[in-house]
Simulated assay, not measured.
Amino acid sequence: MFRLIKNEMNKIDIEKEIMNSNEEYNTIAFDKEFLKEEDIFKEHKEAEELDIERYLVKTGEEYIGILNYGMSSPRFQKPWLSLIAIHKKYQGLGYAKKLYMAYEKLMKDKQVSCIQIAVHSTNEKALNFWTSLGFIKFDERTYEGKVFFSFEKDLS
């Protein structure tokens, strides 16, 4: 159903289009509706520093989303899902849940026993989504002036 395409600097326009279709998320995460090329470059640099694998998600000939994850989170050294973003025109079709389930299967195949995520405390849509998938809040922290909730899901 999905193909994961390595997200590299030469695909920055695709990533920017997907991210900029999600103005509400951008406002929560970046304090602006639309990201510029330099914002995407900054995300790539941070991902490299944190050893995050970055993928564009394709179905058919269409790029529909982004999946970013790491195998060792900076705070807890556990596998973590950094980002799932679905292009606005493909939202409401079940793609986020299906993409998450594909990611969870990938982690189970790697014999991962749990997955962690951090969610902006003000992102109600995301908080509802992740808790509906079985994630449980275990921590709260402030980073760069924003409150995040840390969640974990047991895969064993």
Rank of each mutant, 00 (worst) to 15 (best):
G60H: 08
E62V: 02
E104K: 15
S73T: 00
I117G: 09
A47Y: 13
L50R: 12
Q91E: 09
A47F: 14
N26K: 03
Y25R: 00
P79S: 02
E104D: 06
S113L: 13
L50A: 08
Q116W: 09
I64R: 02
F41H: 12
Y25T: 08
K42T: 12
E24D: 14
E46Q: 14
H44Q: 10
T122V: 12
H87F: 10
N26D: 09
Q91F: 01
I28M: 07
E53H: 15
L35K: 02
I66D: 01
N20I: 04
D31C: 08
M107F: 08
L50P: 08
L67I: 01
D31G: 07
N123G: 09
K36C: 10
T27W: 13
L83E: 14
D39A: 05
V112I: 14
K88A: 08
E33V: 01
I64S: 00
L50G: 02
M19Y: 13
W80R: 06
K45V: 13
K58Y: 05
H87T: 08
Y103G: 01
R54H: 04
A118K: 11
Y103D: 00
V119Q: 03
L67C: 01
L56R: 09
D109R: 11
P74I: 06
L106Y: 15
G60N: 09
R54M: 05
Y69E: 09
I84C: 08
K36L: 08
D39I: 13
S113F: 09
Y90F: 15
A102Y: 14
I64P: 01
E37H: 11
S82T: 11
L93G: 02
D31H: 10
D109W: 06
L56F: 07
A85Y: 13
Y55F: 11
G60Q: 08
A118P: 01
E17P: 00
P74A: 01
A96M: 00
Y90V: 03
K110M: 14
M19T: 03
L56I: 06
L56A: 04
L67M: 07
S21D: 12
E38I: 08
F41D: 11
P79E: 06
S73I: 14
Y95T: 03
M19Q: 12
E23M: 11
D31S: 15
R54K: 13
T59Q: 07
I52P: 02
F76I: 05
T122Y: 11
L83C: 05
H87C: 08
G92A: 03
Q91L: 04
K88L: 10
C114K: 15
K88P: 00
M101G: 08
K89S: 12
E46L: 14
N20P: 07
A102E: 11
A118L: 10
A29E: 05
Q116A: 01
K98T: 11
Y55T: 08
I66F: 04
L35C: 03
M71L: 15
Y63E: 00
M71P: 03
E104W: 10
F30K: 12
K16A: 02
D39Y: 10
K32M: 02
C114I: 12
L83Y: 14
N20V: 05
M107C: 03
N68P: 07
Y90K: 07
D39K: 13
E33L: 14
T122W: 13
A47S: 12
E62M: 00
Q116S: 06
Y90G: 02
P74L: 03
H87G: 01
I84A: 01
E61T: 10
L56K: 02
M107Q: 12
N20G: 05
G65H: 01
Q116T: 13
E104L: 05
I117T: 12
M19I: 04
